[in-house]
Write a protein that binds this DNA or RNA. Structure first.
Lengths: 162, 162
DNA sequence: TGTAATTAGTTGCCTGAGCAAGGAATTTTT
DNA sequence: AAAAATTCCTTGCTCAGGCAACTAATTACA
């Protein structure tokens, strides 16, 4: 790896560009939600979306090994309850569980936001034909698989402490 | 947007998948650095890489409007100095500036890590032909441009408080 | 030339995420 | 059926990131 060839430059490093783009994506979503009058974070938006798709989920169904662990979900849901977008009831058939749903206020928020999101999505991916976008997502999934595969095969034991 | 069609599902939402993949990418880099014996964070790795490419940069050249603002650079560089990978001298032609470079120890670390990184990169993007990878990065840049463009055209003023 | 504006870097504060440990309810084991 | 293990959720701790305010050095301006 030469100090100044193109492949070594950070700006051309795929991983680096992905990191940048996704950070920007989160920032953009944050600004979008703010300008749409929704006082929620991108992470809370994801929760609301999942609940909109499938109401009455237990909290652990909201977790994601990559994005949000259980403690995070607890905090995110708590905040959404305080805003009044979400309600949480104990599952009487299994009292460990707490089932989470959108309130009427939460449904109203989603009804307000979703059309705007669809529009925004168009702008974000404008100039990219549909089939390329599909391929793009496929590649993302491929990378994700490779990453997980690689981590389960660790360690490579280059444990020379520097 | 129907509550249960495919386009609305989060798992198929490009932005969501990108968010997941990039989070995973950062996690993978973190584990890689650890297993390679380098006690640094992915963010610190980026700093070291930039300094390896171009030694003697002033700190503000290390900032990135998306990834790391000035306060962050200050902290990251301070940590790297404490580890002994980096040194910082005041620019005598402009005493506001502090010029940052790799130490011999930092150079040695990079010499150790870089070949491993090249290998790892191959594994991460395996199964994806070179030309597709290039297109992939192009699309990322395109999305990034769209995002920035969109944010500068804000606000759309849907400021109805929900 | 002296005052204002700008630039580079730092510090402090607040929020959000990762991780370990704890607590309550349920299931498994013996 | 009592004890152990598991599951679901919560709390507490620590650390990184974003933002505003601050200091020091330099440049612009009047």
């Amino acid at each position: 790896m030469n100090r100044h060839d193109d492949t070594s430059s950070l700006d051309n490093a795929t991983a680096y560009v992905m990191l940048r783009t996704s950070r920007l994506l989160r920032f953009h979503l944050d600004k979008f939600l703010e300008s749409a009058g929704a006082p929620i974070s991108p992470e809370q938006w994801i929760i609301l979306f999942k609940l909109w798709e499938r109401p009455g989920l237990p909290q652990n169904a909201l977790t994601d090994p990559v994005l949000n662990d259980e403690p995070n979900i607890t905090r995110l849901v708590r905040a959404l309850i305080q805003y009044g977008y979400v309600e949480r009831i104990t599952d009487e058939t299994d009292r460990r569980r707490k089932l989470v749903s959108l309130t009427a206020k939460g449904e109203a928020l989603m009804a307000h936001l979703l059309p705007l999101v669809v529009e925004t999505r168009k702008r974000i991916f404008s100039g990219i034909p549909e089939d390329e976008l599909e391929r793009f997502v496929e590649l993302l999934h491929r990378v994700e698989d490779n990453l997980i595969e690689d981590m389960t095969h660790e360690p490579h034991d280059n444990m020379t402490r520097m």
